[in-house]
């Protein structure tokens, strides 16, 4: 399921702190690493993904570029509220190819995932794909 587009089973990006119409937030959940969401300046940056149901999540995969510090929070509410931190990680810098990272979780449930990009290796960072494994 890590390779399946999150959007194909009803996931949505309900908030993103940057928007370039050429690089909409939906590019992160279309399963394609060629399309991407691009931050448009300053940190932190944030986006929230909502799932149609409560999802059991054991692994989150992120394809990105120049992301440095990333914090992931989850909510189990119907609305995007009451988030709790589930992971924080510093990604390694890459040159000429995307950063690919997998973050293992304890298989807990979530209705929303919040991604907070706290810092970057450049002024602008991109996220190409977010995948999850139940």
């Amino acid at each position: 399921m890590l390779n399946t587009a999150l959007s194909s089973f009803g996931a949505q990006v309900v908030l993103a702190t940057s928007s370039d119409e050429n690089h909409p937030p939906e590019s992160m959940i279309d399963g394609n690493t060629e399309t991407f969401w691009l931050s448009t300046g300053m940190f932190p940056q944030e986006f929230i993904i909502r799932f149609p149901d409560n999802m059991k999540i054991s692994v989150i995969s992120v394809h990105s570029f120049n992301v440095k510090r990333l914090r992931i929070e989850k909510s189990t509410q119907t609305d995007a509220e009451k988030f709790e931190v589930i992971a924080e990680k510093e990604f390694e810098q890459t040159e000429g190819n995307l950063q690919t990272n997998e973050i293992s979780l304890d298989g807990s449930n979530a209705t929303h995932l919040k991604f907070l990009i706290l810092s970057g290796y450049d002024h602008f960072v991109s996220v190409h794909k977010v995948g999850i494994q139940a």
Binding site: E34, F36, N97, L98
Partner: peptide, 14 residues
């Protein structure tokens, strides 16, 4: 200009 430069660079990576 910096943004456009980075955007094009990332586009080539995807």
């Amino acid at each position: 200009a910096l943004y456009q430069d980075r955007r094009q660079m990332i586009q080539r990576l995807g």
